[in-house]
Design a protein around this nucleic acid. Structure first.
Length: 602
RNA sequence: CGGGGCGUGGCUCAGCCUGGUAGAGCGCACGGUUCGGGACCGUGAGGUCGGAGGUUCGAAUCCUCUCGCCCCGACCA
């Protein structure tokens, strides 16, 4: 490809709309352009990278017996109604009507469509297992598209589906995909982690999430270097050191604590307590309150909840621990949840945040708001603790000598605590957890029979019994791979494509187009490199050398051969993008040299 | 959906508070000098100031509405 005629609109400055590194670089390097929020066009460089990624996906799918399909993006509502997801999914689905007024939607995933094919065509266990996949556009009306290609409304996805006669078969298919995914991300030059994840609304029994570490990511992951434990912070736990509480008091005793409002205040107060010996009391509500500006932890409150009886949760944690709100919402199986406002709390308990406690709270609340219902949920780290200190539900008073089990009527114990870096690994003896940000790049699910049952995809077993097919579903976002690859492989000057994803194997830069000898040598080299099977970009633009170097760095081609003044002596310069080192190589050797490098894998 | 920010030549931005000729740098075109890490000089083209309505003699600037984009949160099969 000749750069002089190739469409690569590079930008000198960071576009105003871009925040994260990959987004800025994708725009600056002329890889993509935005059409609307969460909707981007691939320019020629982008399309080349996308094709490279898809090629890896195809090879690794073929490697585990995957058969490529291509399914429609436009779906009739019926199949989604059959599976129950037409109603289960909210505004994330693009919906439309055809000219006859029939409900249609743009596919956000393809379980229903593949299942439709399976149920019509697969009758016998003899036809199983099957591994089907496609690489296709998906539509999701994301509430908040963001960060360039990280969160899109239309994107390309490799989605695979497995069909097995039973759970054991599904386990094997799942394992195949898991291994294929490892190879795919490794080949794509992405450092990734596999984390246990909840299968959420997809249903099914198990799922693995593949994540790539990057500060631009949206997930928090806790991992243990030592044993490989890895979990989303929504699920992660850690091992806490045993604490020995003193015998304590026979009864909890109230004492004055003027001015004490925080856990920290009480640690410094004479006669106070260390944070570990305090009970932190938070108030959450599933009640809608239009006065409250507190953000919802989960869900939007539907109109029919407006007149619901007030329902509050007292959430108890160790003083030095932080609540993970998603864990709380999960533990309560709450559809709607938010932190209570100070006004609400005072109305309920007669004290301000800073002096709250669970002792006598139910009685107190019942006196003040008879219809209010209070549940007390405590973090498991408080189990068995004695001699603790907590608020007295009276401003400027606390209670000491609290024995959790003796003095508080706890309705529910649950893991509510957000783990932090530096805490001990829950799985192994010596490991220490590290918490970092990451982005999801792939997700594999064991669906089981959720879809085959609801949609009637059954086969006959050898015994002649009709059973639902055991299914799995496995997704990888093409744009996510592109994004993660850049997030993990770039520097001040631009992208550094992993060789496997790079739009070209190398760029040949002619330093001065006005010198015929350089042009002739470069043209010769260009042909030789192409004959050697390499994807070459020839920078034959009439630009100064500096501009060409900057652009080559920006678009991130792994190698550059500079054809300059040394060509008269039979030398060109071989420049490696990642290390920014260069060396002079004899013209006669450069082709075989670069061929070796380009084919050497990552 | 809640909170915040921003829409002015292709790009990055100034001008808006305090109404009165629409600006700069980069890019682009042409001429010249340069030519190995985003050159320099000169000349030039290019903008209904997101859109609609209003106030005013006069609106990029003030008011109302609206559309779009970005960020935080909610949400995320």
């Amino acid at each position: 490809m000749r750069w002089s005629q190739y469409f690569v609109p590079t930008l000198r400055e960071d576009p105003a709309d871009a925040e994260v590194a990959s987004h800025k670089l994708l725009l600056r390097a002329g890889v993509i352009r935005q059409l609307a929020a969460g909707i981007y066009s691939y320019l020629p460089l982008g399309q080349r990278v996308a094709l490279k990624i898809m090629q890896i996906l195809r090879e690794e799918m073929a490697n585990i017996g995957g058969q490529e399909f291509y399914l429609p993006a436009l779906h009739p509502a019926e199949v989604w109604k059959e599976s129950g997801r037409w109603d289960a999914i909210g505004d994330d689905m693009f919906r439309l009507k055809d000219r006859k007024g029939a409900d249609m939607c743009l596919g956000m995933t393809h379980e229903e469509i593949f299942t439709t094919i399976a149920r019509n065509e697969i009758r016998s266990y003899k036809q199983l297992p099957q591994v089907w996949y496609q690489i296709q556009i998906k539509f999701r009306d994301e509430a908040r598209p963001k960060s360039g290609l990280m969160r899109l409304r239309t994107f390309t996805m490799k989605d695979a589906y497995s069909f097995d006669i039973d759970e054991a078969g599904l386990d094997r298919s799942f394992e195949d995909q898991r291994e294929a995914y490892k190879r795919i991300f490794t080949r794509a030059g992405i450092r990734f982690t596999i984390v246990e994840a909840s299968s959420g609304a997809m249903g099914g029994s198990a799922s693995n999430e593949f994540v790539a570490r990057t500060d631009a990511g949206e997930d928090l992951i806790a991992t243990c270097e030592h044993c490989g434990y890895a979990a989303n912070l929504e699920k992660a736990t850690s091992r806490l050191a045993e604490l020995k509480d003193g015998i304590g008091l026979e009864f909890p005793a109230e004492f004055p604590t003027p001015g004490v409002r925080t856990i920290d205040d009480l640690t410094k107060f004479p006669g106070g307590a260390s944070a570990k010996a305090q009970i932190k009391t938070l108030v959450y509500s599933s009640l809608n309150n239009t006065d409250s500006l507190r953000p919802l932890v989960r869900g939007a409150v539907p109109k029919d909840q407006f007149d619901d009886a007030p329902k509050y949760y007292l959430v108890l944690l160790r003083g030095d621990h932080q609540l993970h709100e998603t864990k709380l919402a999960d533990a309560l199986a709450a559809n709607y949840l938010r932190a209570a406002s100070g006004t609400e709390i005072h109305a309920l308990l007669g004290a301000n945040p800073g002096s709250l406690g669970a002792i006598g709270a139910k009685k107190r609340a019942a006196e003040r708001i008879p219809e209010a219902k209070i549940r007390i949920i405590a973090d498991v780290a408080l189990r068995g603790r004695r001699n603790m200190t907590t608020g007295a539900n009276t401003d400027d008073y606390h209670i000491r000598g609290v024995d959790l089990e003796r003095d508080i009527r706890i309705d529910q114990w649950a893991d509510l605590r957000a783990v932090a870096s530096g805490e001990a690994c829950p799985r192994c003896e010596t490991g220490v957890l590290e918490v970092y940000k990451a982005m999801e790049i792939g997700h594999i699910f064991k669906l089981g029979t959720k879809y085959s049952k609801s949609m009637g995809a059954t086969v006959l077993t050898p015994e002649g019994k009709e059973v639902p097919i055991a299914m799995g579903s496995y997704g990888i976002g093409v744009e996510r791979i592109m994004t993660a690859a850049i997030e993990q492989n770039h520097d001040q000057d631009g992208i550094i494509w992993p060789k496997t994803l790079s739009p070209f194997d190398l760029v040949v830069t002619i330093t001065n187009m006005k010198q015929d000898s350089l042009c002739e040598a470069a043209e010769e080299l260009y042909k030789d490199l192409q004959r050697a099977g390499l994807d070459v970009l020839l920078d034959d633009r009439d630009e100064r050398a500096g501009v060409k170097f900057k652009d080559a760095d920006l678009i991130g081609i792994p190698y550059r051969i500079t054809v300059g003044k040394k060509v008269g002596d039979g030398f060109v310069e071989l420049f490696e993008r990642r290390t920014k080192t260069s060396e002079d190589v004899e013209l006669s050797e450069i082709v075989s040299r670069i061929q070796k490098l380009a084919l050497a894998g990552l």
